[in-house]
Design a protein around this nucleic acid. Structure first.
Lengths: 310, 310
DNA sequence: TTTTACTTGACAAAGATTAGACAATCATAT
DNA sequence: ATATGATTGTCTAATCTTTGTCAAGTAAAA
């Protein structure tokens, strides 16, 4: 038989939010749960006990007095909590203003962490923001402005390459973790994301991946600096519905243009090409000639994805 | 049967954060683990012992009293800490032989996924392996051989750049997620990990980061392709106890050598430098002149970390 | 030699247990 | 309203258990 997990009173207190005193009082007065005891008389709670106490705690918090609900079983407790007409906690700000104020804090804290070379704090701050905000807002109101700010600071000499590197590593970690490869239905439309050769900075491409993933697409992310013929081969093999190209830096020597032409020659189509990034316009003619759709904003991209879906 | 890695009690103390006294007390009172002994009665811990002690340490820190969790197995411990997404795994092989058989399966499945350009399957397979194996085994028995195999296949023309890119993205995602920036005690020794300019491939550096992180170091990961003066500046600002440099590709034109010399000039010391990677030996003289320690294997690295901890 | 480990036994701080007390809150009868 | 009594969360005090830490003496490594 199984080796059941049991919980000492302190753990129960942690799990339920009830104080140790209250847990004992409820037991003494109502036998709300009757835990086993160790040889030395310590209480030993089962997972069911914890479950019941958690429900009781919730019900009690939303207005029911413990005396009246003490003898309910787990199902009844679930019912009264689910049906509870008592107004649930009203601690959601929900107003855009509040969001913005908070976002400003998050952003400032992130920037501070970057300046002070504190990747741990940066990561914590970003995670907090991620929990507080819905994913699209997180991307548009935290990540995007943060990247812009990093770019500015770098240009202005406020930070060094090393600040940029360290923070990029953290941001990349978080974005990568947001591209969900597992919970995608097998018949989801698929998108291939690549940054052509010479393009080392991949955060833009990752953002695109996160958005597509959260919109239910099947994302194959290929990383930075990929030769045109490799992109073509990937399209050939995977037949994605959409191919997204991220182009941030204009390249003086037309390497990229050559790469794009190579890519164009190798395409025998079926996939829609979407290109975006700060420097797409540099390559407009080439992109046009390969029927690529050029996008200029995150919203643009969402729209284009939606169109291409079915 | 083969060369099992073992740990003396002091190493276990460092790896788990538990004092030597506590480790012995837990063994005496609860038989929490029962290490082998040398002929002269010294304790000799296995990697699984360390894994269990680490989990116990974490659980204990988060409020569970040792007496109640002492007899839990690794899965149950993972569950109560919330580090396992598997609700209830039925049976575990747990014998070394089975481990090896399974590892072969994992590896083959991973290689298949890479050949077939199926990043989702690759990721799933790696996660399965990660749940089954203690982290050090995962690194040494899955990740390291997988990277080697990818290198071989690439040389032999069995796969293309795009296979390599796609699988690298997945492996990087997993390794990055294993570098834990949050649950590090503030007085943990700190390590800075960098790959000098011209070195684009960062998986080796990430592996180093994962190992250091799981050994309780405070990891600052700086990503690939960093100029020497930036590494120097980072050392200056962060005063890490150890700096790890990952050097994989020999560079024909001595860019790297120049970078290293720059780095050397800028160092005013206090940090120990550890360098590793396929091509470290190319730069041996330069590295020697800056008192860098050259390592040739993961075990070497672990050893060196252990020595530098104090 | 000096450092590191091992065992045993001991100790004090932290944590749990019980019984009981107390004040704030709530329902109800006056 | 107001008083009365029950309800309920919080606290103490006294007692026991659990648990981290340490010291002394011995043995092995470095």
């Amino acid at each position: 038989m199984e080796n059941q997990i049991t919980y000492p009173i302190k753990a129960v207190s942690n799990l339920t939010g009830l104080s140790i005193h209250v847990i004992r009082a409820w037991e003494k007065r109502y036998n709300v749960v009757v835990p086993d005891r160790t040889d030395t008389n310590r209480r030993v709670y089962s997972i069911e006990d914890v479950e019941k106490l958690k429900l009781l705690s919730e019900a009690s918090e939303s207005g029911y007095s413990i005396g009246t609900i003490a003898h309910y079983n787990i199902d009844e407790l679930k019912r009264i909590i689910g049906k509870s007409n008592v107004p649930q906690k009203s601690e959601k700000p929900a107003s855009t203003e509040n969001y913005l104020i908070e976002n400003k804090d998050y952003l400032e804290n992130c920037i501070d962490s970057i300046k002070m070379l504190n990747p741990r704090k940066l990561e914590k701050e970003l995670y907090k923001a991620l929990i507080d905000l819905p994913q699209p807002r997180f991307i548009e109101e935290i990540i995007a402005p943060l990247l812009e700010k990093i770019g500015d600071m770098w240009k202005d000499g406020d930070i060094r390459i090393l600040n940029e590197h360290i923070s990029t590593a953290i941001i990349r970690k978080i974005l990568t973790s947001l591209i969900d490869n597992n919970s995608v239905s097998t018949n989801a439309p698929s998108i291939l994301i690549a940054t052509p050769k010479g393009q080392l900075h991949e955060l833009g491409a990752l953002i695109v991946g996160v958005i597509a993933s959260s919109d239910g697409w099947n994302v194959t992310y290929m990383g930075p600096d990929l030769p045109g013929e490799e992109i073509a081969a990937a399209i050939e093999k995977l037949h994605p519905k959409v191919v997204a190209l991220s182009i941030i830096y204009p390249s003086d020597d037309y390497i990229l243009d050559k790469e794009m032409l190579k890519l164009k020659r190798l395409l025998n189509n079926g996939s829609k090409i979407i290109a975006g990034g700060r420097s797409v316009m540099t390559y407009k003619s080439t992109l046009d000639s390969m029927n690529a759709k050029i996008i200029n904003s995150i919203d643009d991209f969402r729209l284009e994805l939606e169109k291409s879906r079915n």
